[in-house]
Nucleic acid binder design. Structure first.
Lengths: 166, 166
DNA sequence: CTTGGAAAGTCAACAAGGCTGACATAAAAT
DNA sequence: ATTTTATGTCAGCCTTGTTGACTTTCCAAG
């Protein structure tokens, strides 16, 4: 790499042009990031919105609608459209809450879990390949920068999710 | 960080759960990435699609429509709608090609450049802050992983753009 | 010089996935 | 008893993507 990213004490001497490259990298990388799931979903009745719902239901089984709403950052009308089709087609189960019967707890059915696996296998394969190509140190840095880019509320949500896993 | 990302010889011992966290980080970070420009554009007649067009026209002044099409990865009908409004509102100038008069060369007007600056200032500010928080080593890693995530064609496009700068 | 094909623009129609506003229901909380 | 919360739903709108069809312009090869 010709361009240095050096500078001590956390001070970075990056030109606007260099930062702009980071922005473009983010743009192109995100296209790659969504490409595989998009390919799988096209032809089915589902899209990226369904993928996101399935992902986070898998991630937090039994999560409530409101919970999912705040993670996804969309309106309930928007989520409901997606959720309804997933429930109708038997990918997601909606259970009335036991303590609070107003709440609906969302779970993947076997069929839903199968699609989740197919989608996340594809997406993880790409991530793994990228990680392998870039190396362990790069992966650490990747995560740190991404986390620093998030809005504070989203960062909190992300960290909450992080703790729930592993 | 409790989770190790170690492993010698480019072999990464990452569990599916750890890779999944990278995927979620990408999702949340992209929201932050687009948040500031989106805020600026809301209320104007423009959206994210306009931002992207403006960005790449600024980046490669005089680029042709076909060129832009392949960078953005949308159909000409979709781009045309965006481009038309930018031209009508005097943000973009479309010049008939000198050698090949079928081609249109796209340039930002002063007004267009002003909006471009406003948008990219906001976006760069966030990137800079993230870079500063994460440190120089992390920034290197960030770039490497992003580049490795791209589809090969997009990576080539990205690298071509990279060379044109600096 | 004619003709094939590339570059660009445009019209129409459609779909996904966002949004707002309004309203309904059930159940919890006060 | 009343208010608030969680959810669902209807209707309508916007942006941004898509396909298909058609036109104009014009370079380039026959």
């Amino acid at each position: 790499m010709a361009e240095s990213v050096g500078g001590g004490e956390g001070l970075l001497f990056l030109t606007d042009e260099q930062v702009r490259k980071g922005i473009e990298a983010m743009f192109f990388a995100y296209r790659g990031f969504t490409a595989d799931p998009d390919r799988i979903l096209e032809g089915m009745d589902y899209g990226r919105a369904h993928h996101r719902a399935i992902h986070f239901i898998h991630r937090s089984p039994g999560t409530t609608v409101n919970n999912l709403l705040s993670i996804l950052g969309v309106t309930k009308q928007s989520l409901n459209r997606v959720l309804r089709s997933l429930i109708e087609n038997g990918l997601v189960e909606s259970r009335v809450g036991r303590q609070d019967k107003r709440e609906r707890h969302l779970l993947l059915t076997a069929k839903g879990a199968a699609l989740e696996r197919e989608l996340s296998d594809a997406q993880r394969a790409r991530m793994r390949a990228a990680y392998r190509a870039a190396g362990p140190v790069a992966v650490q840095g990747f995560r740190q920068v991404l986390e620093a880019m998030m809005d504070p509320d989203l960062r909190r949500q992300f960290q909450t999710l992080k703790e729930s896993g592993t």
